[in-house]
Nucleic acid binder design. Structure first.
Lengths: 205, 205
DNA sequence: CGCTCAATTGAGCGACCGCTCAATATTTGT
DNA sequence: ACAAATATTGAGCGGTCGCTCAATTGAGCG
C-alpha cells in the first residue's frame, strides 16, 4: 500500500479502527481487521500502537464525536430543543452500536488501565455537557433546575442503565418505553416556567 | 476425584462455576478454572455441559441468590426497611463482584443466546421483586406509588447505570454520591404519608 | 546514480481457549 | 466372579489472538 509519513499513518489507523470497532464491537474487533481495512501488513499496526492503546483511542474518538453531534455542536439551538432531541434519539436503533461500545468499554475498563482512563474521561465530558445544558436551559428560561450537576449524573446513569436493558433485549422494555421512562425522570429534574412540562413537544434531530 | 452420580456432579459443577465466576469474572473464568476447583479432569466438564451453558446457568444462580437475600427472603420485614437496605447496600464494596458480572453478562448476551435468555429472565425477576416491594409499601402505608411497575424499571436502570459508572472508577462519582443519587430518585417515585420522606432513617442489612 | 533511513511486510512464535475421544477406573446388577 | 453400565481422565487438536523481527521496499537527496 502507499507509503505515509508516520503522523498521517497513525491518524489513518485510528480512523480505520473507529470503523472496524463500530461494526464489530470493542471485543470482537482484532488487529487483523484493522490492517485488512487499511490494506497494510499485520506488522505495521504494532509498529505504531499496542492494540490496547489503539482500541481505547478509537473508542474515545467515537464517544466524543457522538457527544459533539448530540450536544456540543448545538450551542446555537434552544436548550429545550437539544434536550428533547437527546431523549428522542437516545434509544433509536441508530444509537445501538455506540451503546454497545459503552457497555463493552465499561467491562474492559476493569482490566485495561488505558480504557479505564478513557471511559472516565468520556463520562466526565458527557457529565459536563449535560450539566451545561441544564444550566443553559435555566438561563434561557426554559426551565429551572436546582442541581444541574446532580441531575446530570442521574440522567447519564439512567441513560446507560436503560440502554443496557433494551440492548439485552428484554421484550418487557421496548425502546418506546425506555424513552418514556427517560422523559419522566428528566421532567422530574427540571421544572417548566409555569409548572408546565418543558418537554411536552416532540421533535427529531 | 471421587465418583458422583450425574445429577450430583452437575450440581457440584454449577456450584464450582459460581465460585470461580464470582472470583474471576464471566469473561476471565475458564473451563480449566472450574475443573481445577473441583479437582477433576478437564474432559469431565464438557461431558456434562458446554461452557457457554454452564456459565450462564452459574450467573443465573448468582443473580437469583443475590435477589433472594436482598428482597425475596425478606417478606417478613417492613417494606420501607427492605428498600432502605437495598439502597444502602447497592454500592457497597461487597456488591462490586455481582455488578461486574451484570455488566459482563449484558455484554456477553449480544453474542450468546443462552446468556441473553438468562439476563432477560433475571432482569424480569428483579423488576417483579422491586415492583412488588413498591406495592407492598403502599399496602403497609409506608408510602404511595402511582406506577410501581414503571418505578421499578426506572430504579433498576438507575441501579445498573450508577453501578457501571462507579465501577468504571470515575473519581467524580463516589460510592456515597451514587447512593445519594439513588435515594433522591427513589424518593421521587414514592411519597410519604404526610409528605414526609419515607426513607429518612438509615440502616444496614 | 547510489546512499540513507523511514516505512512496510508477513511467516511464524508463544500463549490461551474450549472441546474431543480412546483409554481407564469404578460402581452396579446378576 | 463376571459383565455391563457409568464415570472419569488428559494428551492433544484446531482455532484465535497480539505481537516480533529479519528482510524488503521506496522516497528523498547530494
Amino acid at each position: 500500500m502507499s507509503r505515509m509519513p508516520a503522523a498521517q499513518r497513525r491518524e489513518a489507523m485510528i480512523a480505520a479502527s473507529q470503523k472496524v470497532i463500530l461494526a464489530r464491537g470493542l471485543v470482537a474487533a482484532t488487529t487483523r481487521d484493522v490492517t485488512e481495512e487499511l490494506g497494510v501488513g499485520v506488522g505495521l499496526l504494532s509498529h505504531y500502537f499496542s492494540w490496547t492503546d489503539l482500541r481505547s483511542i478509537a473508542f474515545a474518538r467515537i464517544a466524543e464525536a457522538d457527544l459533539d453531534s448530540a450536544i456540543r455542536q448545538r450551542s446555537d439551538v434552544d436548550a429545550s430543543q437539544v434536550l428533547r432531541d437527546v431523549i428522542a434519539n437516545a434509544f433509536a436503533e441508530s444509537a445501538d452500536p455506540v451503546w454497545r461500545l459503552w457497555i463493552e468499554a465499561t467491562e474492559l475498563a476493569a482490566a485495561d488501565p488505558s480504557m479505564s482512563r478513557v471511559v472516565a474521561a468520556c463520562t466526565d465530558q458527557w457529565w459536563q455537557a449535560l450539566a451545561g445544558l441544564f444550566e443553559r436551559g435555566c438561563v434561557e428560561g426554559a426551565w429551572s433546575c436546582d442541581d444541574p450537576r446532580g441531575a446530570s449524573w442521574r440522567i447519564i446513569a439512567l441513560l446507560h442503565g436503560l440502554a443496557g436493558l433494551t440492548l439485552a433485549g428484554d421484550p418487557r422494555l421496548t425502546r418506546a418505553e425506555a424513552t418514556r421512562h427517560l422523559t419522566i425522570a428528566t421532567e422530574r429534574e427540571i421544572e417548566g416556567p409555569a409548572g408546565s412540562a418543558p418537554l411536552s413537544r416532540t421533535s427529531q434531530r
